[in-house]
Simulated scan of single mutants.
Amino acid sequence: MTRQIALTDDMRASLAKSPEAHKYGHGHALVLSGGAGQGGAARLAARAALRVGAGLVTIAAPTASFYEQSAQLTAVMLTALPDSYSLRGLLQDDRLNALCLGPGLGQKRAAEMVPAALWGARATVLDADALTAFEHEPDHLFTQTHDKVVLTPHMGEFRRLFPDLAETLAEDDNARESKLHATSAAAKRAGCTVLLKGAETTIATPDGETALHCATGARAAPWLATAGAGDVLSGIITGLLARGLSPFDSACTGAWLHVEAARSFGPGLIAEDLPETLPQVFRDIGV
């Protein structure tokens, strides 16, 4: 049975923080950044991961953009990451428990970094360039993904990775069911959780668990149609993974929070507003 995503007591409890816990008790997320002039998307994701409650968040930037990132960051930490060998070195630290790759990463850097990240067997969100980099060889990606991974494609990225499944999507009264079926098939093929973004977001795990989040009707959030909103969603999910939620629960809770923040802010929303609205969402739901 497909789960209809809504606020529950369990979700509220998963977002609360114990007063006795220290920062490492809430995980350390690592967000990989692209080159010079391409770091904004990673900053959006990192800020969202921090706002959703990750204890620490670090951006890993190439040398060419290190000082650019340094000028923009305060609460989010920064480390240099010149190559995939260095990433494997960073992952020797077990406290780095969640990774985000894709937003603003650049396809060439993504093709190098994704295998190293997946080698680390951490909870990992792959989005944007981390997906598009493998459009010509998706099986090469799927042989490396594992059950701690969450893929967060929009429809265009889904078509690139799963062209045959995209062809099965209906545009009539069966559209919702066909999207759920395609997302479930994609999750089985990739061996990880898949979140297919849209006004009706579908989420599936390799073992057949499915969920649906509807941002339509009274819960519509049209202001999310803005550059960078998807990067924020990736960061929210990464932060929840760092806090210890399962990939499926992180995706479900992240989808709900993403829309709730947009609805709380309202018209005029830009991506930077989403992480800054999360504290009000938490207050509103009693976290």
Results as ranks from 00 to 15, higher is better:
Gly106Ile: 11
Phe265Met: 05
His140Cys: 13
Ala187Val: 04
Lys197Arg: 14
Glu260Thr: 14
Ile285Glu: 03
Leu151Glu: 11
Gly89Tyr: 12
Gln92Leu: 13
Ala251Phe: 05
Leu180His: 06
Gln38Ala: 13
Leu224Glu: 12
Pro206Arg: 05
Ala16Thr: 03
Thr132Leu: 08
Thr143Pro: 04
Ala221Trp: 02
Leu274Phe: 07
Arg47Ala: 12
Glu137Asn: 15
Thr58Lys: 01
Asp273His: 15
Arg189Leu: 14
Gln4Ala: 07
Ala21Asp: 02
Met77Trp: 01
Leu50Cys: 04
Gly191Glu: 14
Ala54Gly: 00
Leu195Asp: 06
Arg12Gln: 09
Ala116Phe: 04
Thr210His: 05
Val150Lys: 01
Arg3Ser: 05
Ala262Glu: 04
Thr2Asp: 04
Thr124Ser: 11
Ala13Arg: 01
Glu20Trp: 00
Ile285Pro: 06
Asp273Val: 07
Pro153Phe: 01
Gly35Lys: 09
Ala121Leu: 05
Trp256Pro: 08
Thr132Phe: 10
Leu278Asp: 07
Gln72Thr: 08
Gly120Val: 10
Ala60Val: 12
Ala185Glu: 15
Thr238Ile: 10
Ala182Leu: 11
Ala41Tyr: 04
Glu177Asp: 14
Glu260Ile: 03
His154Phe: 05
Ala98Phe: 01
Leu78Ile: 06
Val57Leu: 01
Leu257Gly: 04
Leu212Cys: 10
Ala48Gln: 02
Arg43Ile: 15
Arg43Lys: 01
Glu20His: 00
Ala29Tyr: 07
Thr277Gly: 09
Ala261Phe: 07
Thr238Pro: 03
Arg176Val: 11
Arg88His: 14
Ala261Val: 08
Glu209Cys: 10
Leu126His: 10
Ala261Arg: 05
Met77Cys: 06
Thr152Lys: 10
Arg283Asp: 14
Leu87Pro: 07
Gly40Arg: 03
Cys192Gln: 10
Ser84Arg: 12
Leu161Ser: 11
Arg263Trp: 04
Thr8Val: 06
Val76Tyr: 05
Ser184Ile: 04
Ser178Glu: 02
Ala185Pro: 02
Tyr24Pro: 14
Ile5Ala: 08
Ala71Gly: 04
Arg160His: 12
Ala117Phe: 08
Ser234Gln: 09
Pro222Ala: 05
Thr63Trp: 02
His258Ala: 02
Leu90Phe: 05
